[in-house]
């Protein structure tokens, strides 16, 4: 039987959105869609992961997206950073991202910030944000996001990739281990090989987690690290716990 949500959707989401979200409203209802609309997101990075994250969050109707990146688009980015096109070469990635996202979904608010995320500006960048999406490419910058998430008590959706491999987990301050509990040491710096499809897998998992978090559906990747091995075609998980020796949270989420 076909259900008609049109009148209510028109009232709550605006006529411009009539029909846009019909397929996902089947999953989490008008109420869930309204929650996405009122969610404010910081996407840290507009590279390979950030591209996949931003595309799917914009299309899903997360209401306010602030995307931050300090780099400009280079030719070697275009194999995977699908927010950017040939014509964007030399432009700031954040501004290129803005154009792509506004094109996908003009009903949401997008804010582009051309800055490097640092200790000095992270508080300002997170002003008003309900969650952090990890699209960074190094552990020092991820530790910065982790500290900010702990301080503000907002979730951090972690993802990282290299070549055919990737990982993802969901950090909820006070309820789960933090990123430093899981990865107490940063790996040695190196340029990671990358294909767009791996960024797509991991970025999509991060967005799925964010949707589940906002709509209250399913089982989040809390204290679970999902590991994707594209060469093997294998997805696995390992569990982890808050660490009482963690330098950042001292096992804050242990008893929750």
């Amino acid at each position: 039987m076909k259900e008609d949500y049109s009148s209510m959707r028109g009232e709550m989401l605006g006529d411009g959105n009539r029909g846009r979200y019909a397929r996902q409203i089947l999953l989490f209802g008008e109420e869930g869609q309204k929650k996405l609309k009122s969610t404010r997101v910081l996407i840290a990075g507009a590279g390979g992961l950030g591209s996949a994250i931003a595309f799917y969050m914009a299309a899903a109707g997360f209401g306010r997206i602030r995307i931050v990146d300090c780099d400009v688009v280079e030719l070697s980015n275009l194999n995977r950073q699908i927010l950017h096109a040939q014509a964007d070469l030399g432009r700031a990635k954040a501004l290129s991202a803005y154009d792509s996202l506004a094109g996908i979904n003009p009903e949401i608010e997008v804010e582009a910030v051309v800055e490097r995320i640092s200790e000095e500006n992270v508080d300002d960048l997170l002003q008003g944000c309900d969650m952090i999406m990890d699209g960074m490419d190094s552990f020092p910058s991820r530790y910065l996001l982790n500290r900010a998430a702990l301080k503000r008590a907002i979730p951090l959706f972690h993802g990282a990739i290299s070549g055919y491999q990737g990982q993802a987990t969901t950090i909820i301050p006070g309820k789960t281990a933090c990123l430093s509990c899981l990865f107490p040491r940063a790996p040695p710096p190196a340029t990671a090989p990358a294909i767009g499809s791996t960024c797509g897998v991991i970025g999509s998992i991060e967005v799925t987690e964010a949707i589940k978090y906002v709509t209250g559906k399913g089982r989040l990747l809390k204290n679970r690290l999902m590991l994707w091995d594209g060469l093997e075609g294998c997805l696995e998980e390992v569990s982890y716990e808050p660490s009482p020796y963690c330098r950042e949270c001292r096992g804050l989420g242990r008893d929750a």
């Binding site: 990075g45 590279g47 390979g48 992961l49 950030g50 990890d134 699209g135 960074m136 490419d137 190094s138 552990f139 991820r142 993802g159 990282a160 990739i161 290299s162 070549g163 491999q165 990737g166 990982q167 990865f183 940063a186 790996p187 990671a192 090989p193 990358a194 960024c199 690290l225 590991l227 390992v238």
Partner: peptide, 10 residues
């Protein structure tokens, strides 16, 4: 034991 080489790219 499962030894996991975690990744850091984005």
């Amino acid at each position: 034991l499962k030894i996991v080489r975690f990744v850091h790219g984005g």
